[in-house]
Design a protein around this nucleic acid. Sequence first.
DNA 1: TATTAATTAAGTAATTATACTTAATTTAGT
DNA 2: ACTAAATTAAGTATAATTACTTAATTAATA
Lengths: 218, 218
Amino acid sequence: MSNIRIVLADDHVLVRDGIKALLEDEADIEVIDEASDGLEAIEVLKNSDADLLLVDIRMPGMNGIEVVSKIRENNWPVKTLVLSMHDSEEYVVQSIHAGADGYLLKGASKGELLKALHKVAEGGKYFSGDISSILISNFTNGAAVPKKQEPVEDPFNLTKREKQILALVLQGKSNKEIGEELSISKRTAEVHRFNLMKKLDVKNLIELTNVAREYQLA
Amino acid sequence: MSNIRIVLADDHVLVRDGIKALLEDEADIEVIDEASDGLEAIEVLKNSDADLLLVDIRMPGMNGIEVVSKIRENNWPVKTLVLSMHDSEEYVVQSIHAGADGYLLKGASKGELLKALHKVAEGGKYFSGDISSILISNFTNGAAVPKKQEPVEDPFNLTKREKQILALVLQGKSNKEIGEELSISKRTAEVHRFNLMKKLDVKNLIELTNVAREYQLA
DNA sequence: TATTAATTAAGTAATTATACTTAATTTAGT
DNA sequence: ACTAAATTAAGTATAATTACTTAATTAATA
């Protein structure tokens, strides 16, 4: 197995140096870059082939959780291990939601850090300590429970024909196919599609499907 | 502190008797009633001033989770501790969602049962064993919905880059925008998109979003 | 190191969608 | 019956996607 290439992100030089020192004599771990805040971390990651980002939660500008979110949103092939000086319930849950691969509480030892790094680098998950209680409390107090959305009255003033066309669009049909299905000109279907986009204020199909889903149109 | 008044619900007499025997020499615990299925449990609870329902998941008619749901729905002032002979992820999550105050796995000892009973009776929560991994896995796969969605190993053989492009496509980005974002040619983005469509065997964006959602790709 | 797999990117064409505008017909409501 | 709204459809242009092929350059793995 190859080396684990790590990027360190923490706003305290001392902390970074400390961690580097800890990892110095690990043959299979390599700190290839550092960042002192979230934005810098993003920049660094863009131009690196790091395997893993070891990131502190609390940082100026963009915090660790936001960095993790960004990474996951864009599907960058980097694992993320979040370090926290606080075992706040909030942060743990947020990190998990953001898609972090692991979470280490402040009390973590060197051994635990190494264990976590390896586990995560291999594609696993690592969450330190007894966070089940934290998770459960969050699980039960509704925060993690998806609220059921009430059926919103279509606020877009779609006409019947437009709804009809929308349904077909959402089935992946092309304007030509829609035209054939409804026995109208393909150009007419185009117009309807155009008007739909305008009314729903979207600029592409993806947004259209999202809005349609959200408002349960069609 | 007053006694803990318990109602036992389990379809096996033997199990009920066993638990009663276990609790017999506990001064502060009192089994005030029993039920052999879910419906009976509901009836019994209506006409009692029990503090806690100790209920098995698997029961004829109405199962333990449904009973818990009913109790929570109607806001009856009874704590609920769910007993499970199976440590299925499914049940744990469902129980928590239903609003159970505690969950005991089959491996639980007498000591653990007592601990759980006291904790729950006091208004706390008790979840046995290491269910944090269960919770996390359920927590992370999107909504904390108790739907049984197997952790389908992406059967499409998408490469890292392809997953990355997929994420951007699903954000409604055009090939040009994707190219700019990843600092590659728009033509390259086109190729990736083309390969994605082929691999996922879809013929338009709509199907792509559906498949991606279904398999939780990206 | 050898070899496969992944990423990159250009070429060529055909098809589709986007972004409007204008305007002729239906339909529907008052 | 009158009017507004809805449906129809064409014109014009640009942009984007689809559907391939070929092929060079990295990475990863055996």
